[in-house]
Nucleic acid binder design. Structure first.
Lengths: 336, 336
DNA sequence: AGTGGACTATACAACGTTGCAGTACTTACG
DNA sequence: CGTAAGTACTGCAACGTTGTATAGTCCACT
């Protein structure tokens, strides 16, 4: 049985409460007493019992981070950064994998973990809009691209603008038949919609007519989906001279198809992705991409949550939307 | 304030304990009572308070998983699989990132989280041997390649044999100058040592003399390290005709260097990696590798932990070492 | 008719911690 | 010198849950 305040108190010859005061850094404790208690703590190897603390205070010191999947390098990176940011506030991060399942996401929102966590940082895939309204008062910060005025704080890049930047990079190279890979129908697939919108905007700016045959759907955002979409693009009629993939994994899959068929990149077809994952910096050719400022996203998400947790009433203030910068990174796959 | 047993009891007109009994599925509750209580639970949206539960039972239902880094696809995959396996036991997994820092690892082992977690699945990088002995009774399962008879249960593939298999694949192709990338000096870098040993064994079997110039060190196990090591290999004297990289990331980095210099793979140099991460299945050329049975590793780790948690005394039985299978996956980078 | 057992429900204590109220002693000040 | 303010410490209650003990009811079998 691990020692408690009781045991430390007995050993130091003081009351339980005094030990508690020492542990919590209460000021009015005589130096000699404090030293005696500290010694007892050391000797017994006392560690505060978090469960009891939480039961009293209602705070667990744990925040949850819910992402669709950790396998995806982008989310893995975000997760790592958020853990770091949370550590600076000595919070523990509980990582939840939703696999993009609506059911799992709903569980989170409806607060099945309610008592265990102080707040939630959430990157929703299946849920959108009002479905995200939290029933209990647990503060939540949304990550990624939510549309207008959701029910909670929200950190994201300007997705549409970033997609337009990527596409503009291709039109600026003089490409005319520019395909998009990653289109999704589901109304909840906000990311895909926004990137498609940005793509179309940039095409229009360049005076190009959108060709439905060039807007390739993808079930998921993985390499295999990108490879398959690219293959269809090559097999069906006139191939494009450039492709904007809605994320880097799709782009790497597309690259694989192109190279294995002997298509020159960027000679015949230029390719650009989205996210700036590490893989793209070492692929052959290296992958042009749009890089969201991930460290800043992580920092802001944690800061926002901290603000809501700071004052007791989580309801203070209306939801805020924070924009984070993005950068275009031209690499070999578009001829850098 | 969220409702507690007390509130439900009041609404249903029964005692607190009866509600507790209903919640915990105790058999001897009259159907009508049970229904009334269930209705009250629904109406109030009651959710059990985990902190209080843990305080009573000493069990949190949370296990920790500590890995060097989530960015690494191999660990991300393992993490995902462990979360799945734990979910089947309705455990929550707290993922800790050690960044391979000895200090962080020591904190874990010394049980700073002691009260918060029921058990620990740990993939140590910096710590080895007796330093890993847990002071308190928290059950621990070690992941990855620890040497003989550590202080805790341990799940791993036969690292040396797997490395030998990979190297043998290269000698079987008739390659004679086979390099290794990923050598590390630190005594705690057990993985690197074992893979080097396997490599040397296979060379010896093929009647080849090990050439120190072909054993390339790598600071980390990342793409950049692999790319740099490969560059040095090409620049210093006679280049090899095959390379065994100690993991897939190193191999992908090496691939990048080779292709950007116009070296043919596998024509001039064959490349094989280790881990079977998704990236290697979509690189150009696709990457030959050795695949550990990751799902089984995850399942066994969780099972082992469950066993230690089952009976109250965690000390039952001496540490066990479980071997998991691995498979050689020849792909394009060695001429498949 | 009496005894044992299964069934249903309850009361109480305890898990380890902290907020609040309170006690005893010291110092400061008019 | 008396009172107020500050310092050092203590005791009790409460957070929400569950294990143990207990009490009453009903039925079945001697």
């Amino acid at each position: 049985m691990p020692p408690g305040l009781k045991d430390v108190a007995a050993r130091a010859g003081v009351s339980i409460k005094t030990v508690s005061n020492v542990v919590n850094g209460y000021v009015h404790v005589a130096p000699t007493t404090r030293a005696r208690v500290q010694a007892a703590i050391e000797a017994l190897g006392y560690v505060p019992n978090m469960a009891a603390r939480q039961l009293r205070s209602g705070r667990s010191g744990v925040i949850a981070l819910a992402v669709p999947e950790l396998q995806s390098p982008y989310f893995a990176e975000i997760a790592g950064l958020i853990v770091q940011a949370a550590e600076r506030r000595s919070w523990t991060v509980l990582i939840d994998q939703t696999d993009g399942l609506a059911e799992r996401e709903r569980d989170l929102v409806e607060g099945l973990r309610r008592h265990a966590i102080d707040g939630l940082i959430f990157s929703p895939l299946a849920l959108a809009g009002e479905e995200l309204a939290l029933r209990d008062g647990t503060p939540m910060v949304l990550l990624g691209e939510r549309v207008w005025h959701g029910p909670a704080d929200h950190v994201a890049i300007d997705n549409t603008a970033a997609a337009a930047d990527a596409t503009r990079h291709l039109t600026a190279l003089g490409r005319r038949r520019i395909a998009a890979i990653g289109v999704q129908d589901k109304p909840s697939a906000v990311t895909a919609h926004q990137r498609l919108a940005g793509y179309r905007t940039a095409l229009a700016e360049a005076g190009l007519t959108p060709d439905p045959a060039l807007e390739m759907p993808a079930e998921g955002f993985h390499r295999a989906d990108g490879a398959a979409a690219m293959a269809r693009l090559l097999d069906e009629g006139a191939p494009p001279d450039a492709v904007f993939c809605f994320n880097d994994l799709l782009a790497l899959g597309a690259l694989r198809t192109l190279l294995s068929r002997g298509v020159s990149v960027p000679g015949d077809i230029a390719v650009i992705g989205f996210d700036d994952i590490e893989d793209g910096r070492f692929s052959t050719p290296t992958l042009s991409t749009v890089a969201p400022d991930a460290p800043r996203i992580a920092q802001l998400a944690v800061d926002l949550l901290a603000e809501r947790l700071g004052d007791g009433s989580a309801a203070t203030g209306s939801p805020r939307e924070l924009r984070v910068d993005h950068r275009l990174l031209p690499r070999e796959s578009t001829g850098a």
